[in-house]
Simulated assay, not measured.
Amino acid sequence: MALLTLIRHGQSTYNLENRFTGNTDVELTPLGKEEAKRAGEKLKNITFTTAYTSMLKRAQETLQIVLEELKQTTIPVIKIAAFDERRYGSLQGLNKAETALKYGDAQVEIWRRSYDVCPPDGESLKDTFNRTVPYYKQEIEPKLKAGETILIVAHGNSLRSLMMYLENISPEAIAEVNIATGSPRLYTFDNELKLMSVNYL
């Protein structure tokens, strides 16, 4: 049996301000740090062997807080751009409500939620999938097969990409999926990595 845990970083300053963040490297808010601490508390019964995160400090700090809460700060931590948030291009830093007034709610929703439509000068979820999932398959699946217990702390869209792969979610259905900040998602697999269960904490 293999166990994989995914956590979206805690609330960031741009989350709080309702801005498009993308790969802008913003900080956690005090609430975001508390969300990370609570995530760690929920995982007290799990011993991780390896952790992965993105190159962005909001994910890295969330992971650090989780591992401190678990007293597991000595495990290997791998930081990799494959798990970075998708780039929102020229929308990054803009307020989402103001952007919706300018372009219309429908257009903004397409930019945010569709699978293969890019925001101006940015990445689509498909682009994010094409860098996140191959890395996962190459680097993490062999470790899961070997019995390691893996923790990934990343971002809404890089994790939505992984969910598509892990849960066989269609491009149409993923548009309805939103991942809360700081909420662990646990995947249990058999020895051949067939998905047995998904639990939300």
Rank of each mutant, 00 (worst) to 15 (best):
T47C: 12
F48R: 13
V177I: 15
H9Y: 11
Y52H: 11
G89T: 09
I80F: 09
E69S: 14
S170A: 07
L186A: 01
Y14N: 03
R160L: 12
Q60C: 03
C118I: 00
K194L: 00
K145S: 01
E148C: 02
M164P: 03
E123F: 07
R19E: 04
P120D: 08
P30S: 00
Y136R: 06
N23V: 01
L201A: 00
A2Y: 00
S170L: 06
Y136D: 05
E85A: 03
L28T: 01
T73Q: 15
M163C: 14
A154T: 07
L56Q: 10
T73A: 12
L28A: 02
I46Q: 10
S114Y: 07
T128E: 02
I140N: 08
D25L: 00
E85H: 06
K96N: 03
I80P: 00
G104S: 10
L56C: 04
L28G: 01
N157I: 01
L56K: 03
P119L: 08
G22T: 02
E34Q: 14
R19W: 02
A39N: 11
A97V: 15
Y165D: 15
Q138M: 13
R38Y: 12
K143I: 02
R87E: 12
P119C: 07
N168I: 05
G22Q: 04
N199Q: 13
I46A: 10
T149W: 02
N95F: 06
Y88R: 02
L144M: 07
N191K: 10
C118M: 09
K137A: 08
L159D: 08
Y135S: 03
L31A: 07
Y115L: 06
S12P: 01
T149Y: 03
E176R: 15
V66P: 08
S158R: 04
L125P: 01
F83E: 06
I80H: 15
E34F: 09
Q64P: 00
N157F: 13
K143T: 03
A2T: 06
E35A: 07
G104R: 11
Y88Q: 04
D105T: 14
A39R: 09
L91M: 12
N168K: 15
I78Q: 11
V177N: 10
G93T: 05
E85V: 06
G182L: 09
N199H: 11
E68W: 01
L16S: 13
K102M: 10
G10H: 07
T149R: 14
G32L: 03
R185C: 13
E17K: 15
N15C: 06
I65F: 06
L144F: 04
D127L: 01
L70C: 13
A173F: 04
A173P: 01
T24I: 10
E68K: 14
L70A: 13
T188Q: 13
L186M: 11
L56A: 04
R58D: 02
F20D: 04
L162A: 10
L201R: 10
A2P: 00
N178Y: 14
R38T: 12
F83A: 07
K102A: 14
Y103C: 08
G122D: 07
P142N: 07
L4I: 08
I7F: 09
Y200P: 00
G40M: 09
T5G: 05
A82V: 02
I174C: 11
E109M: 12
G22A: 04
G93P: 06
